[in-house]
Design a protein around this nucleic acid. Structure first.
Length: 272
DNA sequence: CGATTATCCTGTGCGC
DNA sequence: TGCGCACAGGATAATC
């Protein structure tokens, strides 16, 4: 669900509300949400002050005084939501952050793919995240050229490979490919220099526009920001989820393709 | 090394 | 209306 624009929107919400605040307690229930290390390690965070909320790709990094970083990944269905302390816990609430002079923050995640873990304070990234590629917002023409050069794999598979470029998922890969006029199933290495440039420009433009819109909230409303507000970039989707509808640019029919196990949406007239 | 596949879960929406 | 099944925005380990 959440890709870079949604995670960035959550990050901004956390930064506005919680940076500078002291954590009273972090309570975790269940075994799956904290699974990389014993959950008791998180007890060390109580009393710490949140000094920064950053993001790399789809990972959130909450940095605390005392040189610790709490990493949060929402995966398919995770949400971080501000809540009144006495309001009833939503189903699938797996963690509750209590702060001094700030509202409660709750981690809700029906599918339990999301996770929290304590990481080192390495800069720019803790060792646990060192496998990630360049953040997609920072990726330029040279980065895009480097990951596509000589590759036989479909363009979309590379765009969504977090070890190459971090932050792009299924929705934005399709939207970026449309914006660049490139088929998502093009062998990545077949792109010309001009196409690589177009792809890099589209990557930045689509992600920036999606952040400006607060991300994409689909019909199931599985993505909402920390205050529970929906994003609006779904209204600007050109191809994602539009199979059978008219292409907004040429009037042709948007197709649903299969690339590996994932579906992809594209206009085969506008994208080549 | 690069590419596919299976897996972790719950919820939803579709066809019958 | 009810049921079963395919599928969903992700990451990663295993396999060929």
């Amino acid at each position: 669900l959440p890709e870079l624009p949604e995670v960035e929107t959550v990050r901004r919400g956390l930064e506005a509300l919680y940076v500078g605040r002291r954590l009273l307690s972090l309570e975790v229930s269940g075994r799956r949400t904290v699974r990389r290390h014993p959950p008791q390690l998180l007890d060390r965070l109580a009393g710490s002050v949140l000094v920064g909320a950053s993001r790399h790709g789809k990972y959130l990094l909450l940095r605390w005084n005392g040189r610790r970083a709490l990493v949060v990944h929402l995966r398919m269905s995770g949400q971080l939501r501000v809540a009144e302390p006495r309001s009833p816990l939503a189903p699938h609430t797996h963690a509750v952050f209590r702060f001094v002079d700030a509202p409660e923050l709750r981690f809700v995640d029906p599918r339990t793919f999301g996770e929290l873990f304590l990481a080192g304070a390495g800069r720019p990234l803790p060792a646990e995240l060192s496998h990630l590629g360049t953040d997609a917002l920072q990726a330029g023409v040279a980065d895009v050229a480097a990951i596509t050069r000589g590759r036989k794999a479909p363009l979309k598979a590379l765009l969504t490979d977090q070890q190459l470029i971090a932050g792009v998922g299924n929705i934005y890969a399709d939207e970026v490919c449309f914006s660049a006029g490139l088929r998502p199933d093009r062998p990545a290495g077949s792109l010309s220099q001009g196409e690589v440039r177009r792809l890099a420009v589209s990557l930045g433009r689509v992600l920036e526009a999606a952040i400006a819109a607060g991300g994409s909230t689909l019909a199931d409303r599985r993505y909402l920001d920390v205050q529970g507000a929906a994003g609006s970039y779904q209204l600007e989707h050109k191809v994602y989820g539009r199979a059978g509808h008219a292409c907004l640019r040429c009037g042709g029919v948007v197709q649903k393709l299969k690339i590996g196990a994932k579906s992809a949406y594209a206009c085969l007239n506008c994208q080549r």
